[in-house]
Amino acid sequence: MSTQQPFSIRIAGENSLIVYFGDQPSAEIATQVAQTADNLKLSMQGLLIDLVPSYASLLVIYNSLVTDHYHVRRCIHTAAAAAQTDDGQNTETGKLVSLPVYYSTESGPDLQSLADRAGLSIEDVTRIHQQTEYRVYAIGFAPGFAYLGEVDQRIAAPRLATPRQKVPRGAVAIADRQTAVYPAQSPGGWNLIGLCPQAMFDPNAEPSMPVQVGDRVRFESIGRDEFLSLGGQL
């Protein structure tokens, strides 16, 4: 049985309420956030402007000209209560997405230093990175940037003291107990351990992202040749 997390609702702004499901991220809470969001999309049609699911919260932005915060609170209560009932039935929620990674010092410039710091071999680091089934806790920072948790304590690593000006598109990275694939070239301070050839964000694709909040992700090691044949660039 899953634990029934109590939730609280607070005002965020003139047309926004934020629902808190806890103060620590967990797979159960991620499921609850995702399901509450799905339920609200259905029950608040015509009233909803946008939803922002995150680690343990859900921001609900509504059209304040056609509804008010009292009504939205009632919608949230119903949606969150239904989500709690659902996850008791099924803990394997969210789809499982497998992402290929070319782990190497060539594709992951911080792999060696991360291994040294952890007192592990490069092989150990990449094996441990693949062993965990991660949960998509939040999407933000840049379009398509999915925060995945939680990274095994043994390979957790703090952010770089000086962020890089350019992290390449597809970079697989670790910061503290989170991991992510950079959807596009951008500045960034995470530790780079490999490259993923799959697009994490494509405005012209439907859907434009392979994952959404609440989904599960596994990484699978691929070789250099396969990485290149899948369209990866070094």
């Binding site: 922002v52 995150s54 859900l58």
Partner: peptide, 10 residues
């Protein structure tokens, strides 16, 4: 805080 959604004008 844990990262959370930001509304307009926050």
């Amino acid at each position: 805080i844990l990262s959370e959604g930001i509304c307009l004008g926050a």
